[in-house]
Design a binder for these strands. Sequence first.
DNA 1: GCCAACGTTGGC
DNA 2: GCCAACGTTGGC
Length: 156
Amino acid sequence: MKTTRRYWLMKSEPSVFSIHDLARARDQVTSWDGVRNYQARNYMRAMEVGDGVLFYHSNADPPAVAGLAEVVRKAYADHTAFDPKDKHYDPKSTPDQPIWDMVEIRFVRAFKRPVPLDTLRKVPGLKGMELLRKGSRLSVQPVRAGEWKLILKLAE
DNA sequence: GCCAACGTTGGC
DNA sequence: GCCAACGTTGGC
């Protein structure tokens, strides 16, 4: 039995990895490694193949929802945590007892007109978005179906 | 570059 | 279990 499709927002700094990098990636797929926050990890564990992803550019000018992606592989162990040379190495996570997970997402499209953060703030229907909460830093967060629809409309 | 908000760590 | 110190995030 298939449950309804769910929606998420994932942040990335475009100077590190942008929606355009995703479009150019092999098979237009990337693994979302390096997440080292429990709440964000738990949201990734809740993702199902086919779920929608808003690809958000943080630390950008302007910060904006830049396009769409979709989940193509469910959460599995993030091996970058095992590598002492990796930026996101975490000795608490081992292949036997992994702590951190990643998912894989595939490019869907880049918005011709990315939807900037300050535009999102002006939309009454988006008042409850996690992204807009003061002090919110979650890099992976759920998005309501209504919010997803509104943002797609704003991107047209 | 600044700094507020947040999560984590570690001393006690 | 408390909380100060620290490192990070991310808008501005």
